[in-house]
Amino acid sequence: MRKLTVPISEVTIRELTVGEPVILSGVISTGRDAAHKYIIDNFVKTGGNPPEAERELYAKLQDILTEGVIYHCGPVVQQQNGTYSFVAAGPTTSIREEPYQADVIEHFTLRAVIGKGGMGTNTLQACQKVGAVYLHAIGGAASLIAQSVKEVLTVYKKDEFGVPEAFWVIRVEDFPAVVTMDSHGNSLHDKIKSQSNAKLAELIGS
């Protein structure tokens, strides 16, 4: 199985094709609806000139996300003696971020987005343009994924967005996923869907 380490180079990403299982290691950030909307409003729409109050976070996110990875996940988090750990950390449905994802990929030169269920045409095009992939995590495999989260480094916007929506910066080791959208315009989801549609028509004779 191919191992990916963050930051990931464009060359490595361009070698990946749909259907390939990978394991990922390095520092990544979670982000769901609130985080994506925040990035668009403060960084993308301002052309990289965020309001004063958001500049510090912008620099930090640039560090993490440039050639980096964002994970669609709303974790169950435990706090003990001041340190956080992930108890359950399965993927959440990605398509909700479709209106934002392409811009976020381009803005930061993201190399991978992890989630479940796949994403749409805009994201696929951004992957092709920038050199990024969509990685599908295994739905329901919460224990195993939580185990691959070795460390919670920090969290941003926890009070503002709430625990599931915050930017959790985590160090993962051997995080298992499958490339289902690659940087060459291929989506495994579209391919499987058209095959199964054809097979269904054959089986029910319509």
Binding site: A88, A89, G140, A141, S143
Partner: peptide, 21 residues
Amino acid sequence: ALDTILRNVEMARANATPICQ
């Protein structure tokens, strides 16, 4: 995918934690 699912099941059993969140 099936391998990940099976390893997840083993882990949940061993730690008595929920199989899925």
